[in-house]
């Protein structure tokens, strides 16, 4: 446990001490601030208009503002997470500091767990910041917190997947550029596994690929649902990528 925390602490420290994290936070909050305000403003205008026309307002804040915001956060987090995880392994390999980790009394599993924890905490910090926008809306309007919290649970799980995928990409190379490219392709790629259900004939495989669809599971959370199957799905993606990373780290001994 101590090995994990030591490595996680070191990587978190190096993330927070580098300009990278702050530039990413700055850009993300900039985009979110502008777009959130715009969509909230549009929603408010439409709602008032409907009231003025004497219609019963059937528009839901969650559906029109929060769901959009969560979608935007998800999209930008794909990019941000890849940037945050690209250095986890690639840089250690390039600077030969990986030698220090591999000759220290820590196992490959501990190294991977420590690095995953660091990437996860940094990425979740950004997700946490994005939650401030809907929460601040509480001062303006009354709404049900339930669906928002469900959406954010989905978002946290999805971001956890991106971190695992990005870390795996980083472990494959010592070039951070290649780590970014691979990380992006992998992260975007998991969204398209579900699309394969269109490409197969047998009903069995159609069901399998439908279950592997990130979009299907994520939209379930956005609609306000919390399903064990979906949680298990996201945790499996995390586990598989961490496991693969662990194998890559372990295999560096055999080369």
């Amino acid at each position: 446990m101590r090995g994990i925390l030591t490595i996680a602490g070191k990587d978190l420290r190096s993330l927070f001490y580098s300009p990278l994290f702050w530039v990413i936070s700055f850009l993300l909050t900039g985009v979110w601030s502008v777009l959130y305000q715009v969509s909230l403003g549009t929603f408010a205008r439409n709602a008032t208009m409907m009231q003025m026309q004497g219609q019963e307002s059937s528009m839901s804040l969650h559906e029109h503002v929060f769901a959009q915001h969560v979608g935007l956060v998800n999209f930008l987090m794909i990019l941000a997470v890849v940037a945050l995880t690209m250095r986890l392994f690639a840089e250690e390999k390039k600077n030969r500091t990986f030698d220090l980790l591999l000759t220290s009394p820590v196992t490959a599993t501990q190294i991977v767990a420590g690095k995953y924890l660091a990437g996860l905490l940094a990425s979740w910090t950004l997700v946490g910041i994005s939650l401030l926008y809907p929460l601040a809306t509480m001062f303006l309007a009354d709404f049900d917190l339930g669906p928002l919290m469900a959406s954010y649970l989905g978002l946290l799980l999805l971001v956890a997947c991106y971190v695992a995928v990005g870390m795996f990409a980083s472990s494959l190379t010592e070039s951070t550029v290649l780590a970014v490219v691979m990380g992006l392709i992998f992260s975007v790629g998991i969204w398209f596994i579900g699309a394969l259900s269109e490409a197969v004939e047998q009903p069995f495989w159609v069901t399998v690929f439908e279950h592997l669809s990130v979009g299907k599971h994520f939209s379930f959370f956005i609609r306000g649902g919390v399903g064990v199957a979906s949680i298990v799905f996201f945790l499996s993606v995390v586990f598989i990528n961490c496991f693969l990373t662990q194998r890559v780290v372990e295999s560096s001994r055999w080369r």
Partner: peptide, 30 residues
């Protein structure tokens, strides 16, 4: 590995740490 102190060909140092921070990190890691 607990019993061995190893200096590879390229010193495995982190550029973004101070000397003291680095040594503390290595001590914890070991």
């Amino acid at each position: 590995k607990k019993r061995i102190g190893y200096l590879p060909e390229t010193p495995p140092v982190y550029g973004d740490m101070t000397v003291e921070e680095y040594l503390r990190f290595v001590a914890h890691l070991k």
